[in-house]
Every structure is written in structure tokens, then in C-alpha cells.
Design a protein around this nucleic acid. Structure first.
Length: 139
DNA sequence: AATTCACTGTAGC
DNA sequence: GCTACAGTGAATT
């Protein structure tokens, strides 16, 4: 079931089935507002606090597991690069980017904290969002 | 300083 | 299997 969250940076929708979060979307502006673990986490996130993550759907591939751990090890306000992360995960930068784009949980899993070696890099829902998120976390 | 280019590994079909 | 990428560093102009 799709629900909405009204963030200071833009509208966020997420798929919550009552038990776990299935996915996050930054462009589908449909659904109702509801109080659940996901909206609570987002609420706190945008207040600058860190909570433990709500239950998330299992990754579709083993690589996604490693990817999550790698991303979650980047603290708020810090950034890493595709090259750096790919080395840590024993893969290539290109592959890492591909996997990041396939990650269903932007913001919850902070894929926006990964930038290119000498450029911003891309973002599944537009670099717009990426810039706003990074700027927000810089404070 | 800008552009081209081969190499790369994952996901999705 | 095959193809499309959210990258990178070296080689070339």
C-alpha cells in the first residue's frame, strides 16, 4: 500500500504493507498520510536525528546486502566516492553505480552520499534530490 | 583543458 | 546470455 510523507525537501511516497517497507519513491506523489515506522523515521531524519531503520524488504541480491552495509557506514554529512566504495566492496565503480540505482530505498539507505571522483554523479530520482539532500545534511 | 576510450561488474530482461 | 548503466583513469588532441 502506498503512503505519503511531506518532507521539507519534497514529497516522498513509500510502499508499506503493514509489516515491512517495500520501496521508497521520490516522484510518485500518490497515497495517504499515515503514522507508521517509516513516516516516523523520516520525521526524525528531517529533524536531524538518527533512528534505527524501520523493517525493510529483503534485498533482491546478495550484493545489495553488502551495498546496504557499506552505505550505512557513511555518517550523516559525510560523502564517499564510487571508486572508494567499489574498492571496499571489491567491485568496479561502474557496477556500484548500477547497483545503487537499483536500490529501492533512497534516503533510508543513503545512496545520495556517494558522489563521483570529480563530479556529482547521478541519482535515480534526479540530481535535484541528491543536491538537496546533501545540502540538507551538510548543516 | 577537453574529449575519447577501454575496462569494469551488477541488474533486469 | 545480452545489454544498459548513478564511473574511472590513461591516452590523445
Amino acid at each position: 500500500m502506498l503512503y505519503l510523507f511531506d518532507s521539507p525537501l519534497g514529497l516522498i511516497s513509500y510502499d508499506w504493507d503493514g509489516e515491512v517497507c517495500q520501496s521508497i519513491s521520490l516522484d510518485n506523489h500518490i497515497g495517504e498520510k499515515q503514522k507508521d515506522p517509516v513516516s516516523q523515521w523520516l520525521q526524525h531524519y528531517f529533524q536531524g536525528e538518527s533512528l534505527t531503520l524501520p523493517p525493510l524488504a529483503d534485498p533482491t541480491t546478495p550484493f545489495q546486502i553488502k551495498l546496504r552495509l557499506g552505505l550505512l557506514s557513511i555518517p550523516r554529512g559525510e560523502v564517499s566516492t564510487y571508486g572508494e566504495l567499489s574498492e571496499a566492496l571489491n567491485t568496479s565503480p561502474r557496477a556500484l553505480g548500477q547497483a545503487l540505482g537499483a536500490n529501492p530505498f533512497p534516503i533510508l539507505i543513503p545512496c545520495h552520499r556517494v558522489i563521483g571522483a570529480d563530479s556529482l554523479g547521478g541519482y535515480a530520482f534526479g540530481t535535484d534530490w541528491k543536491k538537496r539532500l546533501l545540502n540538507f545534511e551538510k548543516l
